[in-house]
Design a binder for these strands. Sequence first.
DNA 1: TGCTAATGTGACAGAGTTGTGACAGCAACC
DNA 2: GGTTGCTGTCACAACTCTGTCACATTAGCA
Lengths: 229, 229
Amino acid sequence: MSAKTVLIVDDEASIREMIAVALEMADYRVLEADSAQTAHAMVVDHQPDLLLLDWMMPGTSGIELARRLKRDETTAELPIILLTAKSEEDNKIQGLEAGADDYITKPFSPRELVARLKAVLRRTTPRGVEEAVEVEGLVLDPASHRVSAHGSAVEIGPTEYRLLQFFMTHQERAYTRSQLLDQVWGGNVYVEERTVDVHIRRLRKALGDTHQHLIQTVRGTGYRFSAKG
Amino acid sequence: MSAKTVLIVDDEASIREMIAVALEMADYRVLEADSAQTAHAMVVDHQPDLLLLDWMMPGTSGIELARRLKRDETTAELPIILLTAKSEEDNKIQGLEAGADDYITKPFSPRELVARLKAVLRRTTPRGVEEAVEVEGLVLDPASHRVSAHGSAVEIGPTEYRLLQFFMTHQERAYTRSQLLDQVWGGNVYVEERTVDVHIRRLRKALGDTHQHLIQTVRGTGYRFSAKG
DNA sequence: TGCTAATGTGACAGAGTTGTGACAGCAACC
DNA sequence: GGTTGCTGTCACAACTCTGTCACATTAGCA
C-alpha cells in the first residue's frame, strides 16, 4: 500500500510542524499550506488523499474552503478533517454540514489525530475489485491472499507474494532489477539490486519444479515472467 | 413485504397521536410508549422494526435509552430516529453518537417524517436473513445468539461474537486489521489496529484446539477465516 | 578452452510482525 | 459500595521475514 498524502492547512506554523511530525512518524507524506487560498491551489496541483483543515483562519475560513471543495466535482471526494478549538464546539454541526468527514477538537494528542485520520481514510477509500490470475495451473488470488499450484497451497512471504503478483499481472515483459525495486518494493527504498536476485530465488524455490520455469532470467537485464518457453 | 412496526416514544399523548395517524395512513403498524422505561420493555416484547424516540422526556431521557439499546446485542440493530426540539439542535451530535440513525427537528410535517422513516428503514433492513452458519462442526446461530463446537457451547464475549460472525459469513478472504475494525467495530471508532490481534487471540482461545485453525494469520496483511488448510 | 562478468545459492544477523499475559478503566448488576 | 465481565492498551516474548554477504556456478565471448 503506497503512502497517503495529507495536506495540512493552518496559519500557525508551530501547529503544522507538530502535526507534520506525528504524521511522518506514521508514514504519511505531508504537505503544508498556511492559508485557504494556497491550500486550494495545492489540492488541485498535488491531489492529496486527505485534508487537515483549521477552522479559524484569517481570510477565507476553513469552513468556507471545505464547502467550496465539496461542491466542486473534481475535489468532492477528498476527505476533510476539521480542526476546531474547544470553545467553538457548537460549530461541529456547521462543519459536518459543510461536508467535513470528521472534526478534531484542539488540543488533541498526536495519537488521536493519527487514529481518526486512519479511520476517515479507511471508510472513504474504496476497495478495488481484485480478480484472481492463473497461469498453467498457478493461481494467485488477491481476495484470499493465496497462491496455489494445481490446487495445493504455495507458501511464500509477503515480498515474494507482491513480486509474483506483479509478474503475473505484467507478463511477457522483461524488467530490470531497478524497475522491480520500484514496482514491488516501492519507489523510495534503498536496497541493493542484488536483493532482487535473492527474492527471485526464493520465489522460484517456492514455486517448485513445476512452475519455476515461468520466471526467466534475462541476462544483462533482469527478469521476465512468461508462459512461453 | 409485511408491514413494519414502529414504536413511538414520547411523553406527550397528542404528539404520539399525530404521528400514529400519519404512520397508519402510510401502512405501518404502530405501538406507543410514554416513557423510556415502558419503551424498553416494549422493545423487548414486541421487537419493533423502528423506534421513534423523543429526546426530552421526564425520567430516563431518550438519548439514555438510545445508548442503552445500541449497547445491547439483542437490540443494537434496531434503527432509531430521534425527535428533537429546534432549540436543542446542538444535541444532534450527541444523538448521532449515541447511535441514532437519524434525527428530526420539531416541528415537522407528517410527510417529512414518513420520508425519513422510509429512508432509514431502507438502509438498515437488509440485515440479511439470519441463518445459522456451520463450518466443521462449529455453529454460529444468530437467532439464539449462540456459538457451539460439535454441540458443546463456546463462551465468547460480544466483540468476539461479532468477529466470528463476520468471518463465518465472509470466508476465504483476507482482511486487513483496518477492514476488520470497519466491519466489526464500525467505521467511526478510533481503536489501535493491534487491538484486532488481541481479539483474534481471544477468539482463537475460545474456539480451542479443534477449531482455531480456521482463523489464519496472513502475514503482512491481516487475517482470514477458511476451512481449507 | 579459458577468462570474465553475471547470476545462483546458503547462511546469518537484524528488523519487523504477530502472539500472549497482564492490567486499568468502564459499565452493568447485584 | 463491591463484584463481575468486557474492552482496549501495553510490554515483552516468540517468531518470521528481509537484506546482505561470501562463495559457487553459469553464460557469453575471444
